[in-house]
């Protein structure tokens, strides 16, 4: 194995169903339902997925949802803002824990 990630592997996602078809079937049925038009549009859901893909840093998901966002009519400005939303939450999640740091430091310090 030359690399853990190869772009063509994304097309083999369905193969995970070979040894656990019922679970895979339920997962993909759920997955497809999640991304169908509902209270949110398919375009909005793809933007959320793109942001989450960057948070979980999944190359397959970034590949798939970059294309999906473009195909659903989003442009790079919107997609970049979506990633910034994920970045802000992810960065903010680190920063807000500084409250704990300050509280513990305060308790320990004179």
């Amino acid at each position: 194995m030359e690399t853990y990630y190869a772009p063509k592997d994304l097309g083999n996602f369905a193969e995970i169903g070979k040894d656990a078809p019922e679970l895979a079937g339920k997962f993909f049925a759920y997955y497809n339902e999640v991304f169908a038009e509902g209270e949110l549009t398919e375009r909005e859901k793809a933007l959320i997925a793109l942001a989450v893909a960057h948070t979980v840093q999944c190359p397959y998901c970034i590949d798939a949802y970059t294309r999906a966002c473009l195909e659903k009519g989003s442009h790079l400005g919107e997609m970049t803002e979506a990633v910034h939303v994920a970045t802000a939450i992810r960065g903010g999640a680190s920063l807000v824990h500084a409250v704990q740091m300050r509280k513990i430091a305060e308790k320990l310090s004179l």
């Binding site: 549009t41 398919e42 375009r43 473009l70 195909e71």
Partner: peptide, 17 residues
């Protein structure tokens, strides 16, 4: 027409946007 090597969005959704 899409600005690249990808397919267009569904017409109705694109029209709304």
């Amino acid at each position: 027409n899409p600005s690249g090597a990808f397919l267009p969005p569904p017409q109705q959704q694109a029209e709304q946007k």
